[in-house]
Simulated scan of single mutants.
Amino acid sequence: MAEIHDDMAEDMAAEKAAHETELQVLDRPTIRAEASTPWGMAQVSRRYAEGIVLHSTASHGGFHLAEKANSAVHALYRSDDGFYEEDCEWAKVAHAFPQLFTAYERRLADRTLRDYFPDAYERVTGAILNGSQSHMRDRREFESVHRNDWVVIAALNSDHQPGFVECIATLGGIRGEVGERRFLVPRSDYSTGRHGFVIDPLKHQPYDGPSSFVTWAARR
């Protein structure tokens, strides 16, 4: 395992070095835009190309594409107003204009599109994604399989039952549901997993004793 880890570290270091080298070639000058965006007034703006500007505000940011540039974005990815926020939607801009991004950024963009826009990604690329290739697709499968199971929405180490994790769960893990139940799970069993911990009714006992949750204790 150590050798695999070392190889991964070397690959990441090489990728980062290549990324930095490519950034030096790409022309992304800071411009004085003072633009109004969905996230507030732009404080820093960088022009990637004609009609393609990345705005940063006090709280968030993203790309704005002028009408001509926006028309080059695939219809299934295109935003009507030309704004693409920086967390996920920026990847749609990278897909439309790969020449403006580094290889590292293009890889992240592909991963982001698969994770958060799997339906559109499949239609655009013709690929068929399985759960492990898309966070959202995996989440949907998890919710479908466990819609009638008790899924933990909050957990902490119990002050009243040493060695156990006190869990609050709802059916399907849906928050805001009135049917909350508490369970005690051995600490050695508890691991949140990618989308949540599923209660095993044969192993994890319902619990109605003193609570370590302040909000729950206040109900009693």
Rank of each mutant, 00 (worst) to 15 (best):
M1N: 10
E3T: 06
E3Y: 06
I4F: 12
H5C: 03
H5K: 08
H5D: 12
D6P: 02
D7N: 04
M8Q: 10
A9W: 04
A9D: 10
E10I: 06
D11V: 07
A13T: 05
E15M: 11
A17I: 03
A18L: 11
H19C: 06
E20K: 12
E22G: 03
E22S: 03
L23R: 14
Q24V: 08
V25E: 14
V25Q: 14
L26I: 12
R28G: 01
R28I: 02
P29R: 06
T30I: 09
I31P: 02
A33C: 13
A33I: 03
A35P: 00
S36A: 11
T37M: 06
T37S: 01
P38I: 08
P38F: 14
W39Q: 13
A42L: 02
R46G: 00
Y48Q: 01
E50H: 04
E50W: 03
G51R: 09
G51H: 04
T57R: 14
T57D: 01
T57E: 05
T57A: 06
A58K: 13
S59D: 15
G62V: 03
F63N: 11
H64L: 07
L65E: 02
V73R: 03
H74F: 03
D80A: 15
D80K: 15
D81H: 14
G82K: 10
F83K: 07
Y84T: 07
E86R: 12
D87G: 09
V93S: 03
V93I: 08
H95G: 00
F97G: 04
F97V: 09
P98Q: 01
Q99D: 11
L100H: 05
F101S: 02
F101K: 00
T102Y: 00
A103S: 11
R107A: 15
L108T: 01
A109E: 03
P118Q: 02
P118C: 04
Y121W: 04
E122S: 08
E122K: 06
R123M: 15
T125W: 00
I128R: 15
G131E: 12
S132G: 06
S134R: 03
S134M: 07
R137N: 05
R137D: 08
D138S: 14
E141C: 02
E141L: 12
V145T: 11
V145W: 05
D149P: 11
W150E: 13
W150T: 02
V151M: 00
V152E: 07
A154W: 11
A154G: 01
L156Y: 09
N157L: 09
N157V: 15
D159Q: 13
G163N: 15
F164K: 14
C167I: 08
T170N: 10
L171G: 00
I174E: 13
G176Q: 09
E177W: 05
V178A: 14
V178S: 13
V178K: 12
R182G: 04
F183M: 03
P186Q: 11
S188P: 05
S188Y: 11
D189A: 13
Y190R: 14
S191L: 08
T192L: 06
T192V: 14
H195G: 02
F197V: 02
I199Y: 14
P201K: 05
P201T: 05
Y207P: 06
D208K: 12
W216H: 15
A218F: 07
A218H: 10
A218K: 15
R220K: 13
